[in-house]
């Protein structure tokens, strides 16, 4: 600061700069500090420019290094685990959707090809293979997924799966379909938003089957005077009016995972409670509930209201116009 010190400052930078290019950059950190101290005593006041902060690390290497290393490594491991958990969330919410999207596209193309080629169709759908397509118009006109045979995890990765022992589309009894609510394409993500009388369309090789969600538990009373007058709700009526065995079959039910009888021919009843001829044709969708959990299952029951043979050249758009959903 004062002029007395100026001569000193000129002397120091010169040796320091000349020394630097000699060694490889940065590497010899540990070696540098020992070399520097001898220079320093002359220049207490003007340290900053020539010497770099590496001096403190030299001390840390000397004392308590084992403890520091352990603590630092432990911290790094914890941070790493946290990042891994975040990555898992990304995987679950995005990567599985992307993977399932590709599988679904493939299954959809295969199904179209199979339907387009007029050879005799398999009477029994093959496990893991698509045999139908599901549409829910209230989720958007372009919402559709292929329905595969079986509900094992590999099949459900492609899209919704059909419980093998349950009825086929249009048959009396109960057609059960399971689908993911989170990740894996999340076909049934919005199942909780379905209202009574919303259409669920199943397309097979030769027909469209239109099911409509049954009245909710709190709507069943006074249905005929209330929502039942909506033209959409033609042919939809509380099933308990039809037979007492259907008392528990309402539009939306939350059950525990063990209730396999949610997809029984007459839901929540033994299989033989009603003869097949007097069973209603139902479609039951199952998914996990609450979202992100498998504590319970959400069950949506719907009833067949009409069925239309596919006309050549007429597709799903024409069907939507016909059933008043377009």
């Amino acid at each position: 600061m004062s002029r007395y010190e100026e001569p000193e400052t000129r002397e120091i930078p010169i040796p320091d700069f000349s020394r630097r290019p000699a060694g490889p950059p940065r590497r010899p950190r540990q070696q540098q500090p020992p070399q520097r101290p001898p220079r320093r005593p002359d220049s207490n006041h003007r340290q900053p420019p020539p010497t770099r902060p590496p001096a403190p690390p030299a001390k840390s290497e000397g004392g308590g290094s084992a403890g520091r290393t352990i603590v630092r490594t432990f911290g790094e491991v914890l941070i790493t685990l946290g990042v891994v958990v975040l990555l898992f969330v990304v995987y679950e919410l995005y990567v599985t959707n992307w993977m399932s999207g590709k599988l679904q596209d493939q299954a959809s193309a295969d199904l179209d090809a199979e339907w387009a080629n007029e050879r005799e169709l398999h009477a029994e759908p093959l496990d893991g293979k698509a045999f139908a397509r599901i549409y829910i118009p209230s989720f958007g006109a372009d919402w559709n997924f292929t329905v595969q045979q079986g509900v094992d995890s590999e099949t459900l990765e492609i899209g919704p799966g059909h419980y093998k022992t349950t009825a086929m589309p249009g048959e009396p009894g109960n057609m059960g379909v399971a689908g993911h609510r989170v990740g894996k394409g999340a076909p049934f993500n919005d199942l909780d938003l379905l209202n009574s009388c919303d259409a669920i369309v199943i397309e097979t090789a030769d027909s469209f089957y239109v099911y409509r969600v049954l009245p909710m538990a709190d709507e069943a009373a006074g249905w005929a005077e209330g929502k039942g007058r909506d033209p959409k709700c033609a042919n939809v009526a509380p099933l308990r009016d039809r037979d007492g065995a259907y008392a528990e079959t309402v539009g939306r039910v939350i059950v525990t995972p063990g209730r396999g009888d949610a997809v029984a021919p007459v839901p929540y009843q033994p299989a033989d409670v009603l003869p097949k001829a007097s069973q209603a044709a139902l479609l039951t969708l199952t998914t996990c509930h609450p979202r992100f959990s498998d504590r319970e299952r959400m069950i949506i029951h719907s009833v067949l209201t009409n069925q239309l043979k596919k006309q050549p050249g007429a597709g799903y758009d024409d069907l939507l116009a016909e059933i008043g959903e377009a």
């Binding site: 509900v151 995890s153 609510r181 049934f188 063990g258 949610a262 997809v263 996990c288």
Partner: peptide, 27 residues
């Protein structure tokens, strides 16, 4: 490491975690 997690470790670990069962099963 990220690819290893996404394509090997997570698909392996996922079935053991409790939020992906959507089917009802008889007890």
């Amino acid at each position: 490491v990220v690819a290893l997690l996404m394509f090997v470790v997570f698909p392996w670990a996922e079935p053991m975690l409790p939020f992906n069962d959507v089917a009802v099963e008889p007890e």
